[in-house]
């Protein structure tokens, strides 16, 4: 087994494992806000791992550079998606799980214009 093959297997395995964890998180966590955490984080590292795996599989610097570009774009867009999902859920008043911690956003929204 060459080093490239080993790297491919390593990164692909780590990536797939984290995507699996993210889907477990969606099943296990109690409300939408905590589920966003699972997908937004574990999903991100999962995709990064798989993309690195692809880059090493082809073994050319050009493919690896493309994958790095993809990772960069992904890091830019995935937090925005997580933020929009969370915000939309809050605006449509999806209930959070009962908790002792404070909710300092409560009552801050202008209901009509949906502005803070």
């Amino acid at each position: 087994m060459t080093i490239l093959e080993m790297l491919t297997i390593f990164f692909a395995t780590v990536g797939v494992a984290f995507i699996l964890l993210a889907s477990f998180g969606v099943l296990r966590l109690p409300d939408i806000y905590t589920r966003v955490h699972a997908v937004g984080k574990a999903g991100t590292l999962g995709v990064i791992g798989v993309l690195f795996g692809v880059g090493f599989y082809f073994g050319s610097l050009l493919v690896l550079a493309k994958m790095l570009a993809l990772i960069g774009f992904f890091l830019l867009t995935s937090p925005v998606a997580a933020h929009m999902v969370g915000r939309a859920a809050y605006l449509t008043k999806v209930k959070a799980m009962p908790s002792n911690a404070p909710d300092e956003l409560a009552g801050r929204y202008d209901e009509q214009r949906r502005l803070l």
Binding site: F18, L21, F24, G25, R28, L29, P30, D31, Y33, T34, H37, A38, K41, A42, T44, L45, A96, M97, S99, N100, A101, P102, D103, E104, L105, A106
Partner: peptide
């Protein structure tokens, strides 16, 4: 990722989620 993964795997979910300004 490791932190969230640990939380997801742990058998008892014991968390206090909330929103801070």
């Amino acid at each position: 990722n490791i932190e969230v993964a640990r939380l997801i795997i742990s058998p008892r979910l014991n968390i206090q989620p909330g929103i801070l300004a």
